Computed example of a mutant assay.
Amino acid sequence: MKPFWLLLVGVVAGWAASGVDWSREAVGEAYTPPNKETPDHSDMLWVTPVTKPIEPIGNETSVGKWSEVSGGIQARLSLAETDRVNGTRMLVPYLELRNASDLANPIKLRCGSENVTFELLDKKGKPSSCKRATERSGAYSDPGTVSLPIDSYMRFTMRCTSYGVPKVAVAAMIATDSGAWYLNEQDLGSQLLRVSISGKKTDDQSTWMGTIVVPPVPVTWQ
């Protein structure tokens, strides 16, 4: 018992010698356990997330407008010019998506060949007369299914690299899995690229369903 009292005396002496003010006024009120009952949130304002405008990355030659919200998803199309192949400008389409919903769970969006379709149009909105590329070999890097958490943004390429580029250079080329086109100098600014996204109902309730026709972008280059 004696060692215990010696230890207690030592602690008290050290406490007193520390010079720290341990009064209630100095350290505050004693800790009060939280109320285990359901808290009252009636005075709170519940604010839903607001997706801020997304700025272009910086290497685009053309950036379209955001689509209307469909099932909590918005989409936008942009074109970026990359290194030439066989003297031909490669115009790469990028699909941009954002989750504009207030859903707690992520939204899954299927972006494979069966769900994303590109079209090249003239200024009147009719199918373009530009020559289509048909020869291709090798696999396509299918984006597959992407998952968008609440208030998130995603940008990825839809370029298909399995098409052949002719040695006789054309002005530019756009290549996607659903279509590829060769463009001449006179086509500059006279063509529009449009993409549509569709999704059918599945057993997975987190998988997006619906149709989005993304506003087209003018086909331009440097």
Results as ranks from 00 to 15, higher is better:
residue 7 L to M: 08
residue 8 L to S: 01
residue 8 L to F: 09
residue 9 V to D: 02
residue 9 V to K: 04
residue 11 V to F: 06
residue 11 V to L: 03
residue 15 W to I: 06
residue 16 A to N: 15
residue 20 V to N: 04
residue 20 V to K: 06
residue 23 S to F: 09
residue 24 R to W: 12
residue 28 G to A: 13
residue 30 A to Q: 10
residue 42 S to N: 02
residue 45 L to N: 08
residue 46 W to G: 02
residue 46 W to Y: 07
residue 47 V to F: 08
residue 51 T to L: 15
residue 52 K to S: 12
residue 54 I to E: 13
residue 59 N to F: 14
residue 59 N to V: 15
residue 63 V to Y: 02
residue 64 G to Y: 09
residue 66 W to N: 02
residue 67 S to E: 03
residue 69 V to S: 11
residue 70 S to W: 10
residue 75 A to G: 10
residue 80 A to D: 10
residue 81 E to Q: 03
residue 81 E to F: 02
residue 82 T to D: 07
residue 83 D to C: 12
residue 83 D to I: 13
residue 85 V to R: 01
residue 86 N to G: 02
residue 86 N to R: 08
residue 90 M to P: 05
residue 90 M to S: 07
residue 90 M to T: 13
residue 92 V to A: 08
residue 92 V to H: 06
residue 93 P to G: 05
residue 94 Y to R: 03
residue 97 L to E: 01
residue 98 R to T: 05
residue 100 A to Y: 03
residue 109 L to Y: 10
residue 109 L to N: 00
residue 109 L to W: 09
residue 112 G to L: 03
residue 112 G to W: 00
residue 113 S to Y: 12
residue 113 S to W: 13
residue 116 V to Y: 00
residue 120 L to V: 06
residue 121 L to S: 01
residue 122 D to W: 10
residue 123 K to D: 11
residue 125 G to M: 07
residue 127 P to R: 03
residue 127 P to T: 01
residue 130 C to R: 14
residue 130 C to W: 11
residue 130 C to H: 09
residue 134 T to A: 14
residue 137 S to E: 14
residue 137 S to V: 14
residue 142 D to C: 09
residue 143 P to I: 12
residue 145 T to D: 06
residue 148 L to M: 01
residue 152 S to M: 06
residue 152 S to G: 05
residue 160 C to P: 07
residue 173 M to Q: 09
residue 179 G to R: 05
residue 181 W to C: 00
residue 186 Q to A: 14
residue 187 D to L: 11
residue 189 G to A: 06
residue 193 L to R: 00
residue 194 R to E: 04
residue 198 S to K: 13
residue 198 S to N: 13
residue 201 K to S: 07
residue 203 D to L: 15
residue 203 D to T: 15
residue 207 T to V: 15
residue 208 W to N: 09
residue 215 P to M: 01
residue 218 P to K: 10
residue 220 T to K: 05
